Amino acid sequence: MADNAVKEGNTTVINVPEAVGVFDSLEAQQAAFYDLRAVGFHHSDISLLGSEKAIEQKLGKAYWRARDLEDDPKAPRAHFVSEEAMGELEGAIAGGFFFVGSFIAMAAMLTPASTLAASIAAIAIGGSPGAVLGTLLARRAGQHHKDYYAEQIRHGGILMWVRCRDKEREELAVRILKGHSGRDVHVHGWSE
């Protein structure tokens, strides 16, 4: 374990300060994230509260409020996933299933005896069920992402932590969090 790390039960915290803020909307939290990245904070220095399932597993709490977990080193963390990244994931899921279905149909129909029209029809027919399945799975992934943020807001807001290596970075993180309507913005002397 590093010299600046302290073990607290199953959680290791390090003696590097961390700014924390609570956001009432995904848009405000996202804007703060992008501004933090723009001024040089690394993606791994920024974390969000884990899912409700992770909170229940780690803390055994079925009911929680954001303000109760702001300074809890045992609160599970998650990485930020942008709306753009979710759109790319949804596209990859839907497109991948369309491609697999089309490929199977194409492989079955592209024999020397098949005609071009029959092959195109087989690809379209084979790809359509895959595209439908892919679209349904993509929507499910997108809905899960939206539900995560809605759940956080229902419990008092979207928590975001920012690891700060020095006093100047602390002040910068606090200024950015507050500048995007972050509530209860403060710094504690440790980070996970």
Rank of each mutant, 00 (worst) to 15 (best):
A2P: 00
D3H: 14
D3E: 15
N4V: 09
N4G: 01
G9R: 06
G9L: 04
G9S: 07
T12G: 01
N15H: 11
P17I: 07
A19P: 02
D24L: 08
Q30V: 08
A31T: 12
A32L: 06
D35Q: 15
R37P: 00
R37C: 02
V39H: 09
V39L: 05
G40S: 09
F41A: 05
F41E: 08
H42K: 15
H43P: 03
H43C: 01
I46R: 03
G50S: 10
S51Y: 02
A54R: 14
A54G: 03
I55M: 08
K58Q: 15
G60E: 09
A62P: 00
A62L: 09
W64E: 07
R65S: 11
R65A: 10
R67V: 09
E70S: 05
D72N: 15
P73H: 05
K74Y: 04
A75V: 04
H79N: 11
H79W: 09
V81W: 04
E84K: 14
M86P: 00
M86S: 02
G87F: 05
E88P: 00
L89V: 11
E90L: 03
G91F: 08
A92T: 14
G95P: 03
F97C: 07
F99E: 09
F99P: 01
V100D: 09
S102Y: 09
S102D: 05
I104S: 01
I104N: 02
A105I: 04
A107E: 11
A108M: 14
A108W: 05
L110G: 02
T111E: 14
A113D: 15
A113Y: 06
S114F: 08
A117Y: 08
A117H: 10
A118I: 01
A118W: 06
S119H: 06
I123A: 14
I125L: 14
G126W: 10
G126T: 10
G127S: 10
S128V: 10
P129A: 11
G130Y: 09
A131H: 09
A131N: 13
V132E: 07
G134W: 08
T135W: 15
L137M: 13
L137S: 07
A138W: 06
A138R: 07
A138V: 07
R139G: 08
R139Y: 12
R140F: 12
G142V: 06
H145Q: 13
K146T: 11
R154H: 11
R154I: 00
H155K: 14
H155I: 03
M160N: 07
W161K: 10
W161N: 04
V162Q: 04
V162P: 02
R163T: 15
D166V: 01
D166W: 03
K167S: 12
E168C: 00
E171Q: 15
A173W: 05
V174Y: 03
R175A: 14
G179C: 05
G179A: 06
H180R: 09
R183E: 14
R183T: 05
H186T: 04
H186K: 11
H186F: 04
